[in-house]
């Protein structure tokens, strides 16, 4: 009987051990969940304070347009090429795909509507915002993060110059201004690209391309809503990019992580907000 007792005893001990192990890992799980929750709340708080400071800082940018111009250059002009080329190709692909689908129904004349509606409502604001996050957003984060790492920001503070006003606010404002312009360029060039493929290459009637588009797209509902979307995206991407840079660990690793976070978080924010905005603007939800 003795070995039997000892094996049951052993089994009980192992069970108790395992139960403790499970409890321990559960405690560990809740601890890290709590940690993540608390730190994300703290970050949310810091970023809100940052946003408010930035928005008030914009007031001091207005009398000094030179600061804004410099940022419009590095944010807007330097994104021009990637936006226009991408817009052209997206428009051409839409022309090609749209033609293939619509010609099955004998409705090639609707190609203009299809290309323009998809660009103006969705692809223009969303794709250009994603490109903007990758091109300008990551550059902003890296720039601000490096400024922090090389003590430029605290150097300015010690010179009694508020870096939020001098460095952050002009970049933020430039991002909010540049984004709708870039999205408009993207959409317009995309429509021309669709025209190039659909009308010049595949033989859709030129008049039908434009007139169907004009008859079916509404200035208020389509164009204005698209512009509102791109302004919202510009606001959010600039905020994320600048905050991640400002909040980055002042080391090379910290800056590179912050840059990655900018691109990832911006992409999430753009796509999530796009759904919400679309539901509010076009949907009946």
């Amino acid at each position: 009987m003795a070995p039997f007792i000892s094996t049951t005893l052993l089994a009980i001990i192992i069970k108790i051990y395992l139960i403790f192990k499970i409890i321990d890992s559960m405690i560990h799980f809740f601890q890290s969940l709590g940690n993540i929750t608390l730190s994300s709340f703290a970050k949310l708080g810091r970023s809100s304070v940052f946003l408010i400071q930035t928005l008030t800082g914009i007031l001091s940018v207005i009398p000094r347009p030179a600061l804004l111009f410099k940022q419009l250059y590095s944010i807007g002009v330097l994104s021009f090429l990637i936006i226009t080329i991408s817009g052209l190709f997206v428009g051409m692909v839409l022309g090609l795909q749209g033609f293939n689908i619509l010609s099955d129904f004998g409705a090639e004349e609707a190609l203009g509507v299809m290309v323009a509606a998809s660009l103006v409502r969705e692809l223009g604001p969303v794709v250009s915002a994603l490109l903007f996050a990758g091109r300008a957003g990551s550059a902003l984060t890296a720039e601000i993060g490096l400024m922090k790492a090389t003590e430029q920001l605290s150097g300015m503070e010690m010179m009694a110059i508020d870096p939020i006003k001098r460095i952050i606010a002009p970049r933020f404002l430039a991002g909010v201004i540049a984004m709708p312009l870039l999205a408009a360029l993207f959409s317009s060039i995309g429509v021309l690209g669709g025209h190039m493929v659909g009308v010049s290459m595949l033989g859709v009637d030129d008049g039908a391309y434009w007139s169907q588009m004009q008859a079916n797209l509404d200035f208020q509902d389509d164009i204005i809503n698209g512009i509102i979307k791109s302004i919202v995206f510009g606001f959010v991407v600039s905020w994320i990019a600048l905050f991640e840079g400002y909040d980055a660990m002042p080391t090379s690793e910290g800056v590179s992580r912050a840059t990655t976070r900018t691109v990832v978080n911006s992409a999430f924010a753009i796509l999530g907000l796009d759904f919400i905005l679309t539901a509010l603007m076009f949907g009946d939800i």
Partner: peptide
Amino acid sequence: TLRKRMGMLFQSGALLT
């Protein structure tokens, strides 16, 4: 206002790049 009367020389120089 007080900081305007204090200069600080950072290790890296902290010049605006």
